[in-house]
Amino acid sequence: MDLKAQNISKRFYRKAGESNYFYAVRETDLELPSGALSVLMGRSGSGKTTLLSMLSGLLSPDTGTVTADGRDLYSMDDRKLSAFRAARISVMPQGRAVLDTLSAWENVFLNARIAGVRDESLVPRALELMERFGIPDLKEALPKELSGGELRRVMLCRSLLLSPEVLMCDEPTGDLDDQNTALVLDSLRDYAHQGHTVLLVTHEADAVSYADRLLQMDAGRISTPDPV
């Protein structure tokens, strides 16, 4: 599934009610093809997370449109958009987006549970994912018992569980050591090459070598939108 953004902008007010605003993302066009790992790099505050949120349907842009599979995401009502995202777009955000009351295993199944998917075949897939990312022993652990890196990998397993057509990861290697970073980047590239659309937002320099497409973001604009 191709994802396409046309002329999207988002501005934020520094203080509510004042005209003192800035553009986090400014009049940006972007196309994410399937079958390729797109890597979006940029300094902190360059608007990477805002762009990812708008592309994934979590933040409505002030101008422009985001279309996935030819459908304008933000013309759908919340119920349809949520169902669409649950089924087809997976997001792994930067912060700790887990439920503290559920075990790691249950958190891995959170997407599936919300999407209403009750498929027995997901169990071996979840086991395989946790095995691959080196956290098979942490099934029963609660999020508060996990380190940042372990939590990140739990979230990655969750994002991959339903094999979404579009996968967007925000700094997935933030808390990981070199070995695990390589493992994750490898997996993301493999996943993209299986025909999925993958966007990786990072400031990790290692990621450049895995990228099929490298995007550079600076002050709300994508400066090098061409493939490397």
Binding site: L58, D78, R79, L81, S82, A83, R85, A86, A87, V91, P93, G95, R96, A97, V98, L99, D100, L110, N111, I114, A115, R158
Partner: peptide, 16 residues
């Protein structure tokens, strides 16, 4: 707030 954001990220609608 973060917990609810996590649920939204995982595809839960506002109504749910």
């Amino acid at each position: 707030k973060r917990e609810f954001a996590a649920l939204r990220v995982c595809g839960m609608s506002r109504a749910r």
